[in-house]
Design a protein around this nucleic acid. Structure first.
Lengths: 211, 211
DNA sequence: CCATATTTGTGCATTTATACACAAGAGGCG
DNA sequence: CGCCTCTTGTGTATAAATGCACAAATATGG
């Protein structure tokens, strides 16, 4: 189904480039060379040029890249020339933090629906204004609002069920914050945000450094 | 400095295995085969066996792995046979969520110090009991408490400075939640927890699926 | 005690990712 | 206009990760 064969690592790096380019753009910097960009992103300069080469030629030899132009192209490649509609499942501490970060999330994403199972929360409004729906209404609300990305911030024990309901509602992409490996059918895009795994990596590194 | 050449992807997978093994252990399951484990973790069975083979032979041919034993071994490999002392930098929405999850964090990690710059917060206690220190006292407190892992949950603009202070205090590992690439000297272990990058991956996948 | 059914551990081929190194272009300057 | 400097874009080598396929080892059952 996929048109071309782009390494997933490339997409991740493009996202990192775009973030730094955004800060450069705000600082008023006009031009950046792959060497500088590489240094700031902790990546090999040739890697950056190769990543970009998958999609076209965006630089000028002997000069570098125009910051605004490159940023625009990368956002276009990533699909950020539109606003993606997200649903949040679970308004606990983490979910609330995500909502609070909403303005802080880079432009391109918006929570259009929020869900919880707690009767004390349902029908109230979150600080950012959205009405909290009961999880039972998920399919209906998701379809009405045209949700494209589901964000799971439920307890681990509820995450798999939440995923299934999102899938049943026609959502094709899930951002999963629960520390569990979701079982989903072929064709679903799932990304896990998992700090326990990252912590384990750090623990391993520290253990090796000593031993 | 590193003793052996283990792929970082292997360490990440070990962490995922351990998490599922933990749930199996709680369910009372005694034995698991690599095929089942693989299916549940979304990983190739041979990959699992190869990952484990880096560190020894933990299974019984024709049978599988003893859940408790394998879990113990993996935790030992990862360095989770001790409790790691962490410091939290930034008690905003995200920081508070992390503290609230503290009990939920898999055993092996503990916040022994928390920091913020907001005078309204400093000297008060967080719900989990720790006194909030001012960032100015970071080096002193970090050394006193024997902090080993620094967790950065500050705004992006403050994250690099926070990292430098952690490094100056002798911390060798950083878990970074700020959406920025930290510049750190050789030998530091840094892991980024970055949902904006994950979201961009999802956006790209959705965009490709249609186009 | 042998045959059969399993499942691990691993050699090897394949695929994927990374990085070097240089030719190709672009601009500046005398 | 020709030379020099700079930085991109990319061919190619190197390295790393993945997955197949099978031998080795263990248990089971007659």
């Amino acid at each position: 189904m996929k048109f071309s064969k782009i390494p997933t690592a490339t997409i991740t790096r493009l996202s990192i480039y775009s973030r730094y380019l955004e800060s450069l753009s705000q600082e008023g910097v006009k031009i950046i060379a792959s060497d500088k960009l590489a240094q700031k992103c902790g990546i090999n300069p040739a890697q950056i040029r190769k990543d970009l080469a998958y999609f076209g030629e965006f630089g000028i030899r002997g000069v570098g890249y125009f910051v605004k132009e490159l940023l625009f192209e990368i956002k276009r490649i990533l699909g950020l020339n539109k606003t993606w509609k997200m649903a949040l499942l679970g308004i606990g501490n983490l979910g609330s933090a995500l909502l609070a970060h909403q303005n802080f999330i880079r432009q391109g994403y918006e929570f259009v629906a929020v869900f919880d199972v707690d009767p004390a929360k349902v029908a109230r409004r979150v600080p950012s204004g959205q009405i909290i729906h009961h999880m039972d209404d998920l399919e209906k609300v998701v379809r009405e609002k045209g949700v494209e990305i589901g964000v799971i911030a439920t307890p681990a024990a509820k995450a798999q069920m939440a995923a299934l309901r999102l899938i049943a509602s026609g959502v094709k992409a899930i951002l999963n914050f629960a520390p569990i490996q979701l079982q989903v059918p072929e064709g679903m895009a799932v990304e896990n945000v998992d700090f326990t795994v990252k912590l384990d990596n750090l623990a391993y590194n520290l253990t090796m450094g000593e031993g």
